[in-house]
Structure formats: C-alpha cells, structure tokens
Design a protein around this nucleic acid. Structure first.
Lengths: 262, 262
DNA sequence: CGATGCCTTGACCAACCTCAAGTGGCGTGG
DNA sequence: CCACGCCACTTGAGGTTGGTCAAGGCATCG
C-alpha cells in the first residue's frame, strides 16, 4: 500500500541456481583456498581480531569441515569440546521435548559462531539445512589464546551479548506476538542477517522448510503457510517460489511486525 | 500421589514476616556493612574472582543502591553505562510492545548480574518487585579491570553463557510447552535458583504477581491461576497463601514440566 | 510418468483468552 | 474494632484464535 520498494520485477534472486549452495562458489572463503587470509567473512567472526601476519596462530588450530544437508554437527547434551565458525550454508539449532516437540532456537548463517551455549554439553542440537562449510576449533585451544590475544575474549563476550539480546527479542516474539507479527519479524530479521554477509541479495531465499519456520516461531506449518499467503495478499511480500521471498512493501511489513493487522 | 516429599506440615516459610524483605535482614550482605568482604553472595558473582586483599579494587568502584517496590532501575533502549550485582530482593526484566503487551524476560535474584544484555542501550527494562539492594558499577570501570584481572572477563563470559542457555530453555518453554508444563517448569526453576543463595528455604515465596508470572510464561493471569489450582488439586503443590508454594510431590511436578498431563 | 516430499487450503475443533463476577487479605479511616 | 475500599487472585461462561485433520497442488527426481 505504499512505495518504499519500487522495484517491480525482482531481477535475479540469491540462489537462483539450486545446484550450487548459496554463496559457497561466489566468494572465496576459507574452504575454497584453505587459508584464513582469503576468508571473506573473517571480519564478522572472532578471527577478525587477528592482523594478517597473526592469522597463522588461528589457522594452525583450525580444522575445516563440510556437512551435507541433513547431517548433524552435534547433539544437545553431548560433550562440547569444539566450537565452530560458519563459513557457508545454514544450520538449524534446536531443542527437543521427550515427546518430539521441537523448538528451533536459531538459524546459524555464515559468520556466526557456534557452540557458545554450553554449560555441560551443548545446549542444543545442530543440523545442516543445506550444504555447509565451517571452521572447527578445540574450545580449549581458543581459550588458551585468550591470554595472548585478550581482544579475542572481548570479541567473544560481545558475540555472547549479541546472542543474548537476540534471544530476548525472540522471547518477546514467542510469548506475546501474533502469527502475523511473528512471521513478519522473522522475514525482516532474516533479511537483515543475510545482508551482513551478502550485500547483493535482492530477495530472501528461505533455505529452511515451513516446518523449520514453524518450530522457530512457535506455530504450526499450516499457520505459517496461511500467514505467508496473507502477507502476499496484503501486498507486503511476493512469493515467486515458496522459498523465495521478496519484500514488496517493507513499511507495511514492519507495521505487521510490530502491531499485527490492527 | 507418591512420596518423595514426606514432609506433611511445611514448618516455617521463607518470608513468613512480610514486614521484612526477604533475606536482607538475615544475611550480612554488602549493604548492611558497606563492605564487599562481608558480602554473603560474593562467590556467586563476578566479584568472586577477587582474593580478600584484592577486594579493594572493586570496592572503590562500587556504588550501593536501594530500590523501593515498583521503582525502575533502568529502561529498555536507554544508555547502558552501568552494570549491577543484585544483593537482595527481586527485579523483573521486561520488554514491551507498542500496544502495551509485555514479555518478562527474567527475574533477577540475589547474586545475579544485570546489564549484560546491551548492544546500544539496555535490551530490557528493569523494575523492582520488592525492596531491592544492589551494587552498581560503571560498565567502563569493569572492562578497565579486565586487563589486570583477566579471570574477571572469563567469569563474565561464563555468566553470559549461562544466561544464554537459560534463554534458550525459555524459548523452548514459550514456543512449545503447554500451560501446565510452563507453570511446573517455572516453579522448579525458581526453587533451584532460590536454593543458590538460600539453602534454608523450605518453600517458594512468589514475590511476583500472577500477572508477572503470566507475562513471563506467555499466558494470561487467569490461565496461570487455573493452572496453580490444577497443580494443587493434583497434589503436586500446596498453596498456603497465594504467594507461598510448597512442592509436595516433586516427581509429579517434574513429570508435569516435561510431559504435561499425558 | 509415477512417487515423494513439501506446501497450500479448507473445515472443524479445542485450548486458551476474554469478559465478568465473586472471594479474600490487607490497609485505612470512621 | 469494624466497615470499607482496594487489589490481587480465583472461578465460571462463552468466544476466538490458532491447532488438528484431511485433501489437493506442485515441483523434483528417479
């Protein structure tokens, strides 16, 4: 109902080619070259504290890993000896109740740090949604570096703080928002996060299924689907395919995110 | 319906005397003496890293504060120059939606660290529920100490990690648990936290109102009240007064917390 | 071209919310 | 000392939202 977005025809979407996992081919990242020096998302991670000539310190502790879609990285409660830096792909982080109900606590994207939430054992399970590459470190090795590179611990503390702020936003969402507010907030938040590591994106590619979104927002698949349809009908978004969202009217979407339909 | 708890008559409850705020008179804490050396909950906080002869470093940065019930400590979004250590009382931490809906993200109890969640400005508002005493520090002063006392930053990181784990548990609760599971989890969690700083407690004194509990669990006042009644009728808890809970059958309560009524 | 998996849509239902009335504790003031 | 008002809590009746169940669409893949 207004015009912040005047782009009528969404040109090319982020992963128009489903054969190639998002971004992994486009950017020369850690795993392409095997060197931290060419990592395009280093500035987003705790590795960003190292000067180019210091990278060797972290590089020799790093172990590159890849995951297929559906593969589990670690499981809730299991010994948490490793931490990870996402370089490519999407991971779902979730907790289960004994009867199988699932709550997704977050989606990890490139640049995200994984494994912070661990008191004794990981606080959640982590599962690849698509093809994922990441850097693995022994938790021990990282904390051993804190002495020589205190800036690294500062960075980690700020990562933890940011996650905490996000977790509290999510509590507000889960406890008090209506479905349309939940879905709108989710789309806006995802768009913002994608922009962190990919400025060229013109739309949002939903790597996760409707079931994942439902379990993230405390809804059912059906309600998520119905809400997408509603947002589409209202002109807030466009759904070229079920996994490709273009925000048509972000003002309207923001309105939905904060106050529902009124 | 079983007997883990055989105590039939709950002897004396924690705050039987409502004239005296919980614990503040019983323990000699910071504000009684004005000295960190006599602080009974120091071991729970970041101050626990200091040896007795080092306490002077933190003590000269500390500013004691008191709050009346209902008084606000800080507001969401406002400049977050200070951090706090709770020494006595209960504080509600909450976020609001534009139309007034409220989500309580947590209750701060003695020993808790306040003000971590702040990117730009506090991530939530904080309001005293009863009479509160706390230690205030300039955020700046604390991080200046990190260089000399790296153990302090480790501790803060672990506080942040613990909060993160708790936040994720709360997401599971808000997104996927039923009212009876929510209320049961809440009671068990609160009991555990109270035990951290008061081992003598035989019951749970609910300093917060039903409305607070509702806004913490993503429910309405009425549903919370009905659920308490149900737990009482089922023999899981006892409600001598509306703000004094005794867990009669913790096995049953744990069962309710995990799987509802089946 | 059929099988599969995911998504969408409709009809129905129940859990939780809303609205309303009543209770009880506590402080105040006559 | 009792009456009153206030406030929080409880309980009931009824309504709405989002969940459940079921069917159909659509893309992908062998």
């Amino acid at each position: 109902m207004n015009g912040k977005h005047t782009t009528t025809a969404p040109t090319v979407l982020v992963t128009a080619n489903p054969a190639r996992p998002a971004l992994c081919g486009d950017h020369s990242q850690t795993h392409e070259s095997g060197h931290c020096s060419s990592c395009s998302i280093r500035h987003l991670t705790i590795c960003g504290v190292f000067k180019p000539d210091e990278l060797v310190h972290i590089e020799k502790l790093m172990h590159a890993r890849e995951l297929e879609a559906g593969q589990r990285l670690f499981e809730e409660g299991h010994g948490a000896d490793f931490v990870y830096n996402m370089t490519c792909g999407t991971i779902r982080l979730y907790k289960l109740l004994p009867d199988g109900r699932r709550q997704i606590t977050g989606f990890a994207l490139p640049g995200d740090f994984l494994g912070l939430a661990a008191r004794q054992g990981y606080a959640y399970s982590a599962e690849a949604i698509n093809h994922v590459t990441l850097c693995r470190f022994k938790r021990r090795d990282i904390s051993d570096l804190f002495g020589r590179f205190p800036e690294m611990e500062h960075r980690l503390l700020s990562v933890a703080t940011d996650e905490l702020v996000a977790a509290q936003d999510q509590m507000l969402l889960l406890g008090r928002k209506t479905p349309i507010e939940k879905v709108s907030s989710f789309l806006l938040g995802l768009q913002k996060r994608i922009a962190r590591f990919n400025q060229r994106a013109t739309g949002i590619t939903l790597e996760m299924t409707r079931a994942d979104i439902a379990d993230y927002l405390g809804l059912t698949v059906e309600t998520v689907s119905r809400t997408f349809s509603k947002l589409k009908k209202q002109g807030a978004i466009e759904l070229a395919r079920s996994d490709e969202v273009v925000i048509r009217n972000s003002t309207l979407l923001e309105q939905f995110a904060e106050e529902g339909e009124r």
